[in-house]
Amino acid sequence: MKCIVGLGNPGKKYEHTRHNVGFMVIDELLHRHQWDLNKTKFNGKYAMEHIQGEKVILLKPQTYMNLSGESIRPLMDYYDVAEEDLLVIYDDLDLPAGKIRLRQKGGHGGHNGIRSTIDHLGTKEFKRVRIGVGRPTTPIPVVDYVLGGFSKEQQEDVVLSIKKSADACESWLNHSFSEVMNEYNQ
């Protein structure tokens, strides 16, 4: 069983913000497969279905970004999901808007949702899709920037990166993550 987690903040207020690109990828996957997040447990909303013969959980933690691990860990424990079968999708300030980067493991890089996930899992050994949101070009606090919407100039690139990230998630169901990285990290 594979578990794909999109990080974000719950509620309409945050729906279209930079910090919610992880949720947006989950929404894209739900749309493609005509699923709904029909389960609510573990401080999250999730769906468990089959894609291409693989049993998959799609999770949106409802804990707010900084406490994401409080949702991910109990779900993984309950369904006995191994760390190597976890993929976490989140925003990254260090990548330009529209770029994606896949990684096998790593630190939190200052991202509090990933910090919480590492703390609750007790490991940095889980797969990630980082989606670029760029850095602010004006003097604005980072928290205000990530909780803001995309500029008109960023919109098209971000929509493409969300689709590309969903493609990478689907590819991982039938290929090794190394192969998926080689294809999508270009």
Rank of each mutant, 00 (worst) to 15 (best):
M1I: 11
L7V: 03
N9D: 00
N9K: 10
N9F: 03
P10G: 01
P10R: 02
G11R: 10
R18P: 10
R18S: 08
V21N: 07
V21S: 08
V21F: 04
G22L: 08
G22V: 03
F23P: 03
M24Y: 01
I26M: 13
D27S: 07
L30T: 09
H31N: 14
R32M: 09
R32H: 04
Q34Y: 06
L37S: 04
N38T: 14
K39A: 10
F42G: 03
G44V: 10
Q52N: 11
G53V: 03
K55V: 03
L58I: 11
P61S: 12
T63F: 07
M65I: 05
N66M: 07
L67Q: 13
L67T: 04
L67N: 15
S68A: 15
G69Q: 11
G69T: 12
S71L: 13
S71C: 14
I72P: 04
I72N: 07
Y79F: 15
D80N: 13
V81T: 15
A82D: 14
A82C: 12
A82I: 02
E83V: 13
E84M: 09
L87Q: 07
V88N: 14
K99M: 12
K99E: 12
I100H: 10
R101C: 05
L102V: 07
K105Q: 06
G107Y: 02
G109H: 06
G109D: 09
R115D: 09
R115W: 05
S116K: 01
T117F: 13
I118D: 00
I118C: 02
D119I: 01
H120T: 04
H120S: 10
L121W: 08
K127T: 12
K127P: 05
K127M: 06
V129H: 01
I131H: 11
I131S: 11
I131M: 13
V133S: 01
G134S: 13
R135E: 14
P136L: 09
V142L: 14
D144L: 10
Y145E: 03
Y145D: 05
L147Q: 04
G148A: 12
F150W: 06
Q154E: 15
D157V: 08
L160N: 09
A168T: 07
C169Q: 00
S171P: 05
L173S: 10
F177R: 08
V180G: 12
N182G: 03
